[in-house]
Amino acid sequence: MPVLSDPAVRFRSSFLAAVKEFRADHEYEVSWFVTDVDDEALHDEAGFEKYIARVLAERTDAGVPPGFVRMTTLWWTEGEEMLGRLAIRHSLTPRLDRVGGHIGYDVRPSARRQGHAGAMLKAALPLAAELGIAEALLTCDITNAASRRVIESNGGRFVSEIDGKLRFRVPTS
């Protein structure tokens, strides 16, 4: 049964395969988390270890780049297989409040349409509550009916549409 896991070196080969899948998928735009992977992380184990350390450090003020907010990144895993990625932003900038939200998630193409996105979001909501987020803001593209269903099935209440994004409030407890 899949679980949310901290990013770790043991998932390296599966993570790299997932990145290739995301880049080859022409059905959706390549996620920012894929473009954010350090190039050296894709080519050697030491670079991957540095990438993991950077991602884990983003949970602290010291690890956050200028203009960003603290973020807890988790991987949806089963055994050693990385099936997806989820990020909980601890707070929102004005831009994130418009089109990003507190929680973003991606399921690797080969694992889509198997219920992972809904289960991943459900597992993340109590973690968001622990971070002090009583009601999470989630957004999705107007055209992404699957993501809308995932959000609504987890209690999402439609708030508004801005810049081609649908905005929802989701209780975290």
Rank of each mutant, 00 (worst) to 15 (best):
G67Y: 02
V69P: 00
V69L: 00
V69A: 01
R70P: 02
R70T: 08
R70I: 02
M71V: 15
T73S: 14
L74P: 03
W76H: 02
T77G: 05
T77I: 07
T77Y: 01
G79N: 04
E81W: 00
E81L: 07
L83W: 10
G84F: 09
G84V: 07
R85P: 06
L86K: 10
R89P: 04
R89M: 09
R89C: 09
R89S: 06
H90L: 11
H90Y: 08
H90E: 14
S91L: 06
S91P: 05
S91V: 11
R95S: 11
L96R: 10
L96I: 12
L96K: 08
L96A: 11
R98E: 10
R98A: 12
R98Y: 06
G100I: 12
G100V: 10
G101Y: 01
H102A: 00
I103H: 00
I103A: 01
I103R: 00
I103V: 03
I103Y: 00
I103C: 00
G104R: 01
G104I: 01
Y105V: 10
D106T: 15
P109T: 00
R112V: 00
R113M: 07
R113F: 05
Q114D: 01
G115I: 01
G115D: 08
H116P: 06
H116M: 09
H116T: 06
H116V: 08
A117H: 00
A117I: 06
A117K: 05
A119S: 15
A119D: 13
M120W: 05
M120V: 03
L121D: 07
L121V: 10
L121A: 02
K122N: 12
K122A: 15
K122V: 03
A123M: 08
A123L: 09
A124W: 08
L125E: 06
L125Y: 09
P126K: 08
L127H: 10
L127F: 12
A128R: 13
A129L: 15
A129E: 15
E130Y: 09
E130L: 08
G132N: 06
I133V: 01
I133N: 07
E135V: 15
E135T: 15
E135P: 11
E135S: 15
A136E: 06
A136C: 05
T139M: 05
C140W: 03
C140P: 08
D141Q: 11
D141W: 04
T143I: 11
N144K: 05
N144C: 03
N144P: 03
N144L: 03
A145F: 07
A145T: 14
A146Q: 09
A146V: 07
S147K: 07
R148A: 05
V150H: 02
V150S: 03
V150N: 02
I151C: 11
I151D: 11
I151K: 10
E152N: 09
E152Y: 07
S153T: 14
G155V: 09
G156K: 06
F158P: 06
F158R: 10
F158I: 07
V159Q: 14
V159K: 14
S160G: 12
S160A: 15
S160L: 13
D163F: 01
D163C: 01
D163Q: 04
G164C: 02
G164Q: 04
G164Y: 11
K165G: 04
